[in-house]
Each structure stands twice: as C-alpha cells, then as structure tokens.
C-alpha cells in the first residue's frame, strides 16, 4: 500500500522484569485514514499509542520488527529527534484535560508552547498563533481564555484547548487516547466532530483509541479490536464482527436505536481460548 504514514509490525511491550506482555505482537498500518483501536481497559490499547509516541516510562521494554512513521524508524530515533517529532508531526491527545493541562500555567502559554517549540518563532508570534488556533477550536472569548487557568474552564473547553495545543502544527498523525470519555456526555459529540473536522482539513491521519466500539465505528474507517495485548479482529464495519469478544463489546455498549433493558456483561468463558491461567498471572 502506498502513502503509508504509520507501519507497525510485531510490536511488543513488557513492563519491568515481568514476562507478561502488555502489548503482544501487534501489527497494523495506517495511511491517510482514520483507524480506531478498541478494547477494554488493560487491553494494551493505550500502551500502543504511547509506544508510538515514545512516551512510555523507562521501565517499559519496547521491541518491534518494524515501527515506521512517515519514513522514519521510530525505534532508531534519539530522544532529541523524538522531541522534534512530538507535537510537530506526531501528536497525542489524552483522556482528561483536568490532568493533562498544567494546573498552574495560563491556557495561552500552554497552547503557545507547541508553536514556540516547533514553529521557530518569537514569543509574541507564538501567542498569536495560539490565539488563532483557539479560534479554530471554536473558543469564543479567546483573549479571556488565554489568561485563564485550567481550573477556571469547563472540561469540554479544556479538551478543545488540548486539541488546539496538539494540532497547532498540523501533525501528520494524531493519536487520540479516549479523547471524550472524561467529558460530560452532552459535549462529547461536539468535541469529537471538532477533532474530526480539524484532522480532515489538515489532512492528518487519526488513530482513535477508545473503549466505545460504537463511537469508534461511527468515526473511523477501520476498527482494530484488542484483547489482552493482541489484536483479535480487524473490521471495517461492525456487522462483520466474528470474534466473540468483539460481539460482547458491541452488546455491552448501549445503542440509541435499539434500546435494550439490560446491557450484556461480557462472558469471559465464551472467548477465552482456555481458562487455565497463564504462567505468571496471579489469581
């Protein structure tokens, strides 16, 4: 396939000296499209995102047969080279703006930081770029918000600020890790469509990580389903789902069009290959 932005082949991540792999032989490619990774918490989906960004803690051991981004071998990059990629050509939007925004810095400076780091511009120009970007994420009173501290704005606005900071330099790849799950239900849709709109107009690729398979299905071209560190299924439409785990994920998510009385709880025994505990796993 031509025009590949990201190529991941046999990615493994293990923490500490433990033999349990958080990510186990994950392979996928990403072109100029939107791909979702779906799985329950602990399935390793966030670890995949952080591994691509090179943001895992030092205790993590990352290996891969291939981890290429935009023609670069990410495993070969020095920390300094990674720094010039991050926030510039490769961005990460995190779950909860209440924690991902620095609590004691004004909003304006946090958005301008990206411009300052990658735009090669003066502080004044960076501030202007930040204001323009905040405008693009539909923040009204930009001047006031620039001076505000994170605790003074709402969660939805916080996440739009985060998107502004991360998309300011129009990255080739945006990794959004549960970008709406910490937000109020009423603003989830608007934040997500804003992200979608910006990604599309920038011509970026999107890797959307979520536990919500229906939401991912409605935004992404492809869905990778992760379970216990492995990709168990690769779908383009929910209807194709074959794996019992995927089906249980679909059943566990409420669907506005087909209300049911009680959501189904995944029944592990139906999709565990065998339920003898793996070596090293504690009970």
């Amino acid at each position: 396939m031509e025009n590949q932005i990201l190529e991941v082949s046999d990615l493994n991540v293990a923490f500490g000296r433990g033999s349990v792999r958080a990510v186990d032989g994950v392979s996928f490619t990403l072109g100029a499209d939107k791909v979702g990774i779906v799985g329950e918490s602990g399935s390793g989906k966030s670890t995949v995102g952080r591994a691509i960004m090179g943001l895992l803690p030092p205790s993590a051991h990352v290996t891969a047969r291939r981890l290429h981004f935009d023609g670069l071998d990410l495993l070969d990059q020095t920390e300094r080279q990674m720094q010039s990629l991050r926030g510039n050509r490769l961005s990460l939007i995190m779950q909860d703006p209440r924690y991902s925004l620095n609590p004691v810095l004004p909003i304006g400076r946090q958005v301008a930081e990206t411009a300052l780091l990658h735009g090669n511009m003066s502080r004044k120009d960076a501030t202007q770029a930040a204001a323009a970007m905040l405008e693009r994420v539909q923040i009204r009173d930009v001047a006031r918000v620039m001076r505000a501290y994170p605790h003074q704005i709402s969660g939805g606005m916080g996440q739009r600020v985060m998107i502004a900071a991360m998309l300011l330099s129009a990255p080739r790849l945006v990794i959004a890790d549960e970008p709406t799950s910490a937000l109020d239900v009423s603003v989830r849709g608007e934040v997500l469509s804003l992200l979608d709109e910006l990604v599309t107009s920038n011509g970026s690729s999107l890797l959307l990580i979520s536990h919500d398979i229906r939401m991912v299905a409605s935004f992404c071209d492809r869905i990778l389903v992760m379970y216990k560190g492995r990709i168990v299924e690769n779908l383009t439409r929910l209807e194709e789902a074959r794996h019992p785990y995927t089906r249980s994920l679909i059943a566990a998510m409420p669907d506005a069009r087909h209300p049911v009385h009680r959501l189904r709880v995944p029944d592990r025994e139906s999709f565990e290959p065998s339920h003898t505990p793996l070596a090293g796993e504690t009970l």
Partner: peptide, 28 residues
C-alpha cells in the same frame, strides 16, 4: 507522575523545559 508532564512531552518539550516551565511552577 502527572498527566500534564506526559502532555508536555507529547508537545515535544525536553527535560530542561519540563523542569523549568512545568514542574517548578507547580512545586513553588
């Protein structure tokens, strides 16, 4: 351990910048 440090690194900030511009203001 805070998320905002990860976010700052995701923006491309290096050790020195994270220390001076992000952590120090928080522990002042």
């Amino acid at each position: 351990n805070q998320d905002y440090v990860v976010a700052a690194r995701a923006k491309g900030a290096g050790q020195a910048r994270i220390l001076m511009h992000h952590i120090l203001p928080n522990i002042t």
